[in-house]
Design a protein around this nucleic acid. Structure first.
Length: 566
RNA sequence: GAUUCGUUAGCUCAGCUGGUAGAGCACAUCCCUUUUAAGGAUGGGGUCCUGGGUUCGAACCCCAGACGAAUCACCA
C-alpha cells in the first residue's frame, strides 16, 4: 500500500515523462566540482557543474533555496525563476522545479558560485538536469542553531534495516565507515611494509578449526559432504608457514553460530597474522607498534575516548601474567596451588564453578570474573593455562602454562596471540583431549584436523601468530558502543511479511458483507445481531468495510443505518 | 535465555480516569526574488504492531503473540 506522498511522486514521475523529461537518463554527467571543493576554495563568480541529491528545498515565490548533497558533503543552491527561464516560458521553474521535483531526487546543476547576504557559499543555478527520481520520501532531520537535532532518524532497527537511508541523512554514520576503511588500509599498509604476504584461505572448510566456537554447517551437493563456514583461519595460515612463507596474514570474515548482542554478530572480521622464527614476546612488540601506528595515521593521536574512559594506545603497553593479575586483584597467589586449593579460592571469591572445570578453566574463570574488566588501558595478559589453549606452545618455564597473550582494552579482549605449537605429537594429544571434551558434551570443543597434524609432521618453524578483532578495534577507535554501528548490514531477523495484501475480506467481514450486500440498506443494530459476531469482531469488521468503501454507516434520527455501496 | 521498557501519520513524538485520534516537520493548493531547524494561509493524510477477551464503548484495561531497545546471563 503506497502512502499519499508516494502516490504523488509517482504522478510527478509520469508528468515528467509526458513532458519529455527522462527521469532516469543513461548518459554520464560530467561534474567540475565536489561540494567540498567549492566551499574550501570560494571563488566568486566561478562557473561550476555539480551533482547530488536534493535534500532541502525552500520555495519563496520566484526564488528558492535548496541543498545538494554529494559524496563529499552539502552545498546550498539558489534557484531564481528569471535566471533559469530567461524567456517567456517559465515552465522549467514554475512546473518542473516547483511541482515535479521532490526532496531526494538527484540533480545535475550548472551554475555560478556566490555568497548570499547572510554569507553562505551558494551556487546560483543556471540550468538543472534531473538525473534520477526518488519515489520514497527521506526522513528530514534538521539541526538548529544550538545543535539540537529535530526529527532525527534514530530508530536503530530502521537505521540498520535501511542503512542506505541512514547513510544519506546521518552524516556521522558515514564517517564511522570511512574511518573503518582507513583503519583497515592502515593496518594492511603496515603489514605490507613489514614484508608479509596477504593471502586468502578457504571460507568453506571440511573441518572448522582454529577456535572454540559453534560453526555454521552447509552441504556441498556434488561432493555430497558437509562443509562448514570457517570460525577462524589459523590452521590454514600455519600450513602456509610450513610451506615456507616468512609471514602471512589475512583479513578474514569468520562465522560463528552463537548468540547475538551488541558485541557479537554471526559474521565478523578478524585479521590473523603468522610470522616464522618469532615468539609471543616479539608479537607483543609488533602488536603495540601496529596499533600505535594505526592510531596516529587514522586519528592523528594515540588518545581515544571510549565511552567514559580515555584510552591511550601509546607504546609500550603494560604486560602482566594472568597469575600476577589474579594476585594483584584478589591477593591470592595461585602459582603453587593444586586444583582443590584453587577451587576453594573460587568459593571464597564467589566465582561460580562446576565439577567439570579443570585447574586451567578455574583460573580462567577467576580472571574473567575478577580481573578482566579492570584493564582499561591496553594491557597484555600473558601465560594462560594450558587447557585453554590447545594450539599454543607450552611455556618455556612452566609446562602448566602456555606462551600466549591476550590484549585487553577497555576491559575487553582485542587481540589474542601465541607462540604457535609446532610439536606434532603434542598437537595430536591436545586435539585428542578436545575430543574427550566433545564426548563430555562440550559443543565448542575442536575437531581433530589430521591434515594439519600431518603438516606439522613435515616441520613448521617456530612461529608466532596473532588475531585481532577488526570490528572491535573499529568500535574502540570510533567510540561506538555496539558492533551494529560498525557493520554496514548487521544481521537481523527477517522483516515480517505481515504486509501481505489483504485485498480479500476477512471471515468476519465476509459474514457482514453477505447480509448487507443482499439487503442494501438496514438498521445497524439489526445487522449486528444477524451477524452473530462479538462486539470486537463486529467493530473491526464494519470499520474495515467502511474503509474499503464497501459500506457506509449513516446517522439518522432513529439511530444508525448501514448502507451498501455498489 | 531472564527482567524492564517500548511499538500511534513519510519522520520525531503527545494522547489524562476507557468516550469516534493530535502537534511539529514532510506532503498538497495559493501568496512571497538572498533564506539559516521552523515565512503566511488553507487542506489532505492513520491496520493506534497482530489476534483474542472485558465493556454500551478500547490507542488506553486483561490474555496470548510479533518486533525492537536497555540491563543481566551465556558466548569469544
Amino acid at each position: 500500500m503506497l502512502s499519499e506522498q508516494e502516490l504523488i511522486r509517482r504522478e510527478s514521475l509520469q508528468k515528467l515523462i509526458d513532458y519529455g523529461i527522462n527521469p532516469y537518463p543513461a548518459q554520464e554527467f560530467n561534474r567540475s566540482h565536489f561540494s567540498s571543493e567549492i566551499k574550501e576554495n570560494f571563488n566568486e563568480g566561478e562557473k561550476v557543474i555539480i551533482a547530488g541529491r536534493l535534500l532541502r528545498r525552500k520555495i519563496q515565490g520566484k526564488a528558492s533555496f535548496g541543498v545538494i548533497q554529494d559524496s563529499k558533503g552539502k552545498i546550498q543552491v539558489y534557484f531564481n525563476r528569471d535566471t533559469i527561464c530567461p524567456d517567456e516560458n517559465k515552465d522549467q521553474y514554475n512546473t518542473v522545479f516547483k511541482k515535479w521535483l521532490d526532496l531526494g531526487d538527484f540533480l545535475g546543476i550548472e551554475g555560478v558560485v556566490f555568497k548570499t547576504m547572510v554569507g553562505e557559499i551558494t551556487v546560483e543555478v543556471q540550468k538543472f538536469h534531473l538525473l534520477s527520481k526518488a519515489l520514497k520520501p527521506l526522513p528530514m532531520p534538521k539541526v538548529d542553531k544550538d545543535g539540537n537535532i529535530h526529527d532525527a532518524f534514530n530508530d536503530p532497527e530502521l537505521r540498520y534495516r535501511r542503512r542506505y537511508v541512514d547513510l544519506v541523512v546521518n552524516e556521522q554514520v558515514k564517517d564511522t565507515f570511512v574511518k573503518r576503511s582507513k583503519i583497515m588500509s592502515s593496518m594492511r599498509n603496515f603489514l605490507n611494509a613489514k614484508g608479509y604476504l596477504e593471502v586468502e584461505t578457504p571460507i568453506l572448510q571440511p573441518i572448522p578449526g582454529g577456535a572454540a566456537a559453534r560453526p555454521f554447517i552447509t552441504h556441498h551437493n556434488s561432493l555430497d559432504i558437509p562443509l562448514y563456514l570457517r570460525i577462524a583461519n589459523e590452521l590454514y595460515l600455519k600450513r602456509l608457514i610450513v610451506g615456507g612463507f616468512e609471514g602471512v596474514f589475512e583479513f578474514a570474515k569468520d562465522f560463528r553460530n552463537e548468540g547475538m548482542d551488541r558485541t557479537h554478530n554471526p559474521e565478523f572480521t578478524q585479521m590473523e597474522i603468522y610470522v616464522a622464527y618469532k615468539d609471543y614476546k616479539w608479537m607483543m612488540n609488533f602488536t603495540e607498534e601496529m596499533l600505535e601506528t594505526i592510531c596516529l595515521e587514522v586519528l592523528g593521536t594515540t588518545e581515544v575516548s571510549i565511552g567514559d574512559n580515555k584510552v591511550n594506545f601509546k607504546r609500550p603497553f603494560k604486560r602482566i601474567s594472568m597469575l600476577d593479575a589474579i594476585k594483584e586483584h584478589t591477593g591470592h597467589d595461585l602459582s603453587s596451588m593444586n586444583e582443590s586449593q584453587i577451587r576453594a579460592v573460587c568459593k571464597e571469591l564467589g566465582v561460580e564453578v562446576n565439577e567439570t572445570m579443570g585447574k586451567g578453566k578455574l583460573i580462567d574463570e577467576i580472571f574473567g570474573e575478577k580481573c578482566e574488566s579492570s584493564y582499561i588501558q591496553p594491557t597484555f595478559i600473558t601465560d594462560y593455562p594450558v587447557e585453554m589453549s590447545p594450539l599454543c606452545k607450552k611455556h618455556r618455564d612452566n609446562p602448566e602454562l602456555t606462551e600466549r597473550f591476550e590484549l585487553m582494552v577497555n576491559g575487553k579482549e582485542l587481540a589474542n596471540a601465541y607462540s604457535e605449537l609446532n610439536d606434532p605429537i603434542d598437537q595430536k594429544e591436545r586435539f585428542e583431549e578436545q575430543v574427550k571434551l566433545a564426548e563430555k558434551g562440550d559443543d565448542e570443543a575442536m575437531f581433530i584436523d589430521h591434515d594439519f597434524v600431518r603438516a606439522l609432521e613435515y616441520g613448521m618453524p617456530p612461529t608466532s601468530g596473532m588475531g585481532i578483532g577488526i570490528d572491535r578495534l573499529v568500535m574502540f577507535l570510533c567510540n561506538q558502543p555496539s558492533i551494529q554501528e560498525v557493520l554496514f548490514f548487521p544481521q537481523m531477523k527477517p522483516e515480517s511479511k505481515s504486509a501481505s495484501k489483504k485485498l480479500e475480506l476477512t471471515e468476519n467481514e465476509q459474514i457482514i458483507y453477505d447480509i448487507i450486500s443482499k439487503r442494501k440498506l438496514m438498521d445497524l443494530v439489526e445487522l449486528k445481531d444477524l451477524c452473530g459476531l462479538s462486539n470486537k469482531q463486529w467493530d473491526k469488521g464494519i470499520k474495515s468495510l467502511g474503509k474499503q468503501n464497501i459500506t457506509k454507516v449513516v446517522k439518522t434520527d432513529t439511530g444508525l443505518t448501514v448502507e451498501y455501496i455498489q
